[in-house]
Design a protein around this nucleic acid. Structure first.
Lengths: 245, 245
DNA sequence: ATAATAGTGTCTGTGAGACAGTATTCT
DNA sequence: AGAATACTGTCTCACAGACACTATTAT
């Protein structure tokens, strides 16, 4: 997908698409000046024990050289979610990840080029799959801590703050956190997800008690041995036991 | 605002709006076929001890004769929220009400005329102010129980279900319910709001205990006398005591 | 007196949070 | 033996939910 902000094409007026039915009914859709619609996808993952977001460095006006949330135009025949999936696929090579519509930002003036309304999605990627996939490690793509962001283009700072708020809000009444972990994980790793996102330490015993009491975890029987200490049990998320923590 | 679906204008191609800056940078925004953007506003209120939504009867193709959520195009220089406020004002004459962006629906094919992406807002109106305002009681505008809806145009049935879900979800961790009541109200009236929205009976003593313990209510000193029974205290919502129930 | 709704208190179970010591592995 | 992290149980307090009777007004 074309990066949002790349200079595009020639000066031909975009043809409006009107269905046969609409023509038959003499329905005309082209009266109004119409805003552009894009989707942006906030992709977050846990990296280096930090909550990080994927950003793209802008190569042209406006906000040249600043970092931005990846996004692009919505194709005329494509659902919003499909557009978001396409963007996700193009940037990370990953499919089938958690994807949720976040909010639609559309203030006039948020983009100096023209009126752009952007439907923002946010995606959670588990670090393991991310490593496998072709990490486009070009100089103009990078992962940044949400707690230490570079200067951002457009209203993208606001969008990221909004995303973080949503993520935190959903953390304790949904199972959203599991999307940041690989299939098998230890309880300590899960706790770390919560601690990083909520940005606070939690009590180990209370955390384990609470999670285990819900029954959403399944003991895989396997253990994770690393380092010079007692190995930890590996659990698996059990979607069948649909509990809301 | 033009009702969504009213046949509009002539066949002139909509002029794109490009800023001076964009022209200077040779930025062209007109390459893509672009979807139309509308806003829809789900307006809900308590009427006759029921949760009702304002709908508009369509007078033309498509879905002629069916009921639809009021909405219209977003003007090129107007924020999404301003467009929603304008729609609200036009339909109910009411201003300064609770208004929240809900979700953006944009599946191709949801509107048979052309690709339409609609940003849906929802508004909560208190019944008292609503009576004062010019209730456009035309035959093609009506209030319907969300629990007994007529056949709806487009994907509006889905949108209303989504709205109801959001309202219910927010009920017990926000103060959203107060927006459906006039400034002064009795505890029983507040309880009725919860009961109607959650569609279940609640225990009077527990409800009062819970609400009063939060401190978000202020006793006005006044009482509401009606009927042949003990009068009820009138309370006021105290936003200062920002509690999340 | 009757009808109608407002208003009030106790008990019990559950879950959240505070809190410290033992277990297992590797070197 | 020491280092490092995994793992476990109890107490207290607050809140949710079940539950029934008295208070006040108008007719």
């Amino acid at each position: 997908m074309e990066e949002q902000g790349t200079s595009v094409g020639n000066n031909m007026q975009g043809r409006l698409r009107v269905t046969k039915e609409a023509e038959e009914h003499h329905y005309d859709v082209s009266k109004y000046e119409r805003p552009s619609v894009t989707i942006d996808v906030v992709m977050m993952s846990l990296r280096q024990r930090d909550l990080q977001v994927l950003l793209i460095k802008r190569r042209s006006w406006p906000f040249e050289g600043m970092w931005a949330i990846p996004g692009g135009f919505v194709n005329i025949d494509e659902s919003l979610e499909d557009a978001a999936k396409r963007e996700l696929q193009e940037e990370t090579g990953v499919q089938d990840v958690y994807l949720e519509q976040l909010y639609t930002f559309g203030d006039p003036g948020r983009d100096p080029r023209t009126r752009v309304i952007t439907v923002v999605y946010f995606a959670l990627l588990d670090s393991e799959r991310l490593q496998v996939s072709a990490a486009s490690d070009a100089a103009d793509v990078g992962w940044f801590s949400v707690y230490d962001l570079p200067p951002l283009a457009f209203d993208h700072e606001k969008i990221l703050q909004y995303t973080l708020g949503r993520l935190r809000g959903k953390l304790d009444y949904t199972t959203i956190a599991f999307n940041l972990l690989p299939e098998r994980f230890t309880l300590r790793e899960l706790q770390r997800v919560y601690e990083i996102i909520l940005h606070k330490k939690m009590d180990k015993r209370n955390f384990r008690k609470k999670i285990l009491s819900t029954g959403i975890l399944e003991d895989t029987g396997a253990k994770k041995m690393e380092g010079t200490h007692r190995p930890a049990r590996l659990y698996r998320f059990n979607p069948a036991a649909e509990s809301q923590l």
